[in-house]
Design a protein around this nucleic acid. Structure first.
Lengths: 235, 235
DNA sequence: TGACGGAATATGTGCATACATATTACCCAT
DNA sequence: ATGGGTAATATGTATGCACATATTCCGTCA
C-alpha cells in the first residue's frame, strides 16, 4: 500500500466536480478535513488544491476557503510558430526573400504602436516567405532602432527579422491580433492572388521591459492558412 | 530578517537567465547546491524550479538536472469569449436570433468531425447574433444527439446553443480553428455584406471524454472582427 | 445603530527528514 | 570492444511541525 499522492487527491476532487457532487459555487472542504479524509498530510492536499487553482478549476482565498469555479472554458492556447518551423513541418521547402529594406519615418499608426515621436525614424522591412512554389506569408515590419540599435547593421538578406529578433532579444511580451481582410492590389500581387481575395492577417507587436521593439503585419492567403487553438481541461 | 522564499529563488534564477549568466542549454546548479547558496531548504529550491519549469523557462529531468530552455515564445493565450459577453463588453445591445432548427443527416465532413456513422442524424441549428444594428456572427452548428440527448427537447429560441451547452455539459476539450474566407452568397446575405467580402471564420469543436459533442462554424464580418492573443513572459 | 478592534480560522509557506524513481555513468564479464 | 548489470545521483514527493497572513466573524463600546 503506497501513500496517497497529491495526484490522487487532485483526481478525486476533480471527479467530484465532474460528477456534480461538487457544483460550481460550492465550497470544497478545508485542507485539514480533506487531509483527514485521505489520511495524508495537509501539505499534500494543499498541493493538489493549489494545482487545481492554477488550472482554473477552483478559486482559493484565505480564511474564505476553496470554491468551485464556473466551468468557463479557459483561455485557449494558440501555438504561433516561427514561419520556418511551420512550413518545414508540412514537408514543403522554406524560402525567405527580402523585398525591401530602408530606414524611414513610419506612418502615424506605426509610430503610435512603437511609441515613437513624430520625426523618429525606424527600420522598415518587407519580406516574403515561400512554402515550396506558393507564397505563405508577406511580412511588413517596422523595428524600433532606439531599442534594438544592433538591427541597423543587419542586412536581413539571409535571416528573417523574426528569427533574428528572437535570437537577439529576450522579448518580454508579445501581442497577436488576428483578423480577416480583402487583399488590396499590392498584397494580391505579392501573394499571387486575385485582388479582393480573403487574406488572414496577423499583427504582432513585441515589447521588452515595456518598450515596444517591433510591429509586424503578416498577411497570409486565406484559402490555405489555418490557426489552431486547443484547450485541454485538466485530466 | 525573513527567511528566503521560493519566490526569491525564482526571481534570482530568472534574473541570471535574463542577464545571460545562464544561457539557453546551460545546466542550472542542482537543488542541493542552490539550497546551500541561498541558505534555504532543498524543497524551497524545488518549488522555485518546478514553477519555472511549468512556465517553460527551464526543463527538468531526473538525474540529468535542470537546463535552461530556448526562449521560444510560449503559446499565446487567446481569449475566446462567449458571444454575449464579447458584445455587451463593447456597450452594444446583444440580440440572438434562431433562423433554423432541424434534425437531419449532416454532410459527410461534419459526420467525420463528430464521429458519426453514414446514416446518423444530428441537430442542426442556424443562428444569428447581433451587436446593436449590425450582425456580429452567424452560427452554423451541429450537435451530436447521441452524446447530448437533452438537446433534442430544447428549442433554442431564447438561449443560444453555446450558452446552453456550456451550462449543460462539462466539456473536457475544445478546439478552435481560425481562418479567413470570402463570404459566399448566403453568408453575405445573412451578414449584410457584399458577396466576396472577407469574413473571419472560427470553427469550434468540443469533446467530453473523447466523444465529440458539437461542431460550430462561426462567421464574422472581417472588417470589424479582431481576436487578440497575449503572451506574458514570466516576470 | 454603527464603527472599530480583536479572535478565530483557512490558506500560504518554510524546514528537516525520509524515501521513491528515473537516468546516467561506470565497471565488469564476455 | 561491447553488452549488460549496478551503483551513483538529481529530481520527485510525503510527513510533521511551526509560523505567517489574509479575511471573516463577532462582540464591545460609543
Amino acid at each position: 500500500m503506497s501513500r496517497t499522492s497529491y495526484l490522487d487527491v487532485k483526481a478525486v476532487i476533480l471527479g467530484r466536480i465532474r460528477s456534480g457532487e461538487l457544483a460550481p459555487g460550492d465550497t470544497v472542504p478545508g485542507e485539514a478535513a480533506l487531509a483527514g479524509e485521505f489520511g495524508c498530510a495537509r501539505v499534500t492536499v494543499n498541493r493538489a488544491l493549489r494545482e487545481l487553482a492554477g488550472a482554473g478549476v477552483v478559486e482559493r482565498r484565505r480564511r474564505a476557503g476553496t470554491r468551485v469555479l464556473d466551468p468557463t472554458p479557459r483561455d485557449a492556447a494558440v501555438e504561433v510558430p516561427s514561419v520556418r518551423a511551420e512550413i518545414e513541418a508540412t514537408g514543403a521547402e522554406y524560402r525567405y526573400e527580402l523585398l525591401a529594406r530602408r530606414i524611414a519615418v513610419p506612418p502615424r499608426q506605426v509610430r503610435a504602436a512603437l511609441g515613437l515621436g513624430p520625426r523618429a525614424r525606424a527600420l522598415h522591412l518587407r519580406c516574403r516567405h515561400w512554402a515550396g512554389a506558393s507564397v505563405h506569408q508577406i511580412e511588413e515590419r517596422w523595428i524600433n532602432l532606439d531599442v534594438v540599435p544592433a538591427a541597423r547593421k543587419v542586412d536581413f538578406a539571409a535571416t528573417g527579422p523574426n528569427d533574428w529578433l528572437i535570437r537577439a532579444m529576450p522579448l518580454s511580451r508579445v501581442e497577436h491580433v488576428f483578423s480577416a481582410a480583402n487583399a488590396n492590389a499590392a498584397e494580391a500581387e505579392l501573394l499571387g492572388l486575385a485582388p479582393g481575395a480573403a487574406v488572414f492577417v496577423v499583427e504582432r507587436r513585441t515589447w521588452i521591459d515595456g518598450r515596444a521593439i517591433t510591429r509586424a503585419r503578416l498577411v497570409h492567403p486565406g484559402a490555405t492558412h489555418r490557426l489552431v487553438a486547443r484547450t485541454q481541461s485538466p485530466l
